[in-house]
């Protein structure tokens, strides 16, 4: 039995189609990432799976339980950390944790081993009001509260949005330890670079899953030859490369540009010599393997063209 199963799920808000015909499966014990920009439908899917919202069409189950019929049972078995800060600001750290434990009919003592790893980092501040905590500490408390009843599936809706690169890394290290304890983790993020930290991912855009699988599997399906190009000045180079024959698309990626080419028309050597001839300085062009972000942009583009 899979931890989560979603079949042909659709949901509209008035005229806005938030999800259209989504299907996916999350296996027991894996970290599954739902990756896509704001407005793609991520939170809607989370709310349906956590039984807070009903779908218009299709079906979904968590631990084999139907999200509509068996909502009460599901709620006891899952942990949910919504995107917005979900704690009681006027309660202390300890009071928040006790509150969530009580709601689920358990105690902090009983499940202390589940949260110990994360909670011990904020325990020295247990008398502080949740509202007075720093962002990183709030996140640790919210995660402790979502885990205190020993859920088998943990839902994390954009836990790293707006979080700096260093804290994001810390958070993913915590997720790896949660996974190691046997919990299935379903996590959403707008950061493409976090895909490589998941066992499997689904890429979502405009309410549709545009691809899913292991990060390596998605990368292997990339249909074009991808080149990295550098040259001074960079922005005029971007415009120059877009106008070249055989260049399917070209975008900046940090200190370099990535260009997808039709290898029957052009190649790295030709582009490099053309760039040099056109007067760009310090030129370099070489073939690279695509990352998830390259794949996402290509798939999202195809989806729009369809």
């Amino acid at each position: 039995m899979n931890a989560i199963e979603v079949h042909d799920l659709s949901k509209s808000y008035g005229k806005v189609r938030a999800l259209s015909g989504i299907s996916l499966e999350v296996e027991n014990g894996e970290i599954f990432g739902l990756i896509g920009p704001d407005g793609a439908g991520k939170t809607t899917l989370f709310r349906i799976l956590t039984t807070l919202l009903l779908a218009d069409e299709g079906s979904a189950s968590v631990n084999g339980l139907d999200v509509k019929k068996d909502y009460a049972a599901i709620r006891r078995q899952i942990g949910y950390m919504p995107g917005r800060f979900s704690l009681y600001q006027d309660l202390s750290v300890e009071e928040n944790l006790e509150f969530f434990a009580t709601v689920f009919g358990t105690t902090v003592e009983e499940n202390y081993d589940v949260i110990k790893d994360i909670y011990s980092q904020i325990e020295p501040f247990k008398e502080r009001r949740a509202g007075a905590l720093s962002g990183g500490m709030k996140q640790k408390l919210a995660l402790s509260c979502a885990l205190v009843h020993k859920p088998s599936v943990l839902f994390l809706d954009e836990p790293t949005t707006g979080v700096d690169a260093v804290s994001r890394k810390d958070f993913w290290n915590m997720l790896a330890r949660i996974k190691a304890s046997g919990v299935t983790v379903f996590v959403s993020t707008p950061y493409m670079d976090e895909a490589s930290l998941c066992d499997r991912v689904a890429l979502i855009m405009h309410g549709k899953i545009i691809d899913s699988g292991t990060p390596a599997g998605i990368v292997a399906k990339y249909p074009y030859t991808l080149l990295s190009a550098k040259g001074t000045p960079m922005y005029p180079l971007l415009k120059y490369l877009r106008g070249k024959e055989g260049v399917i698309n070209c975008f900046s990626f940090g200190a370099e540009h990535h260009l997808a080419i039709d290898s029957s028309v052009t190649d790295a050597r030709k582009i490099l010599s053309d760039m040099t001839e056109a007067g760009f300085k310090d030129c370099d062009v070489h073939r690279i393997s695509p990352g998830i972000e390259d794949c996402f942009m290509n798939l999202a583009g195809e989806n729009v063209r369809k």
Binding site: P37, D38, A40, T161, G162, P190, M297, A300, G301
Partner: peptide
């Protein structure tokens, strides 16, 4: 650019 898709 927080939260927007990679192309945008």
């Amino acid at each position: 650019t927080g939260g927007v898709d990679p192309e945008t």
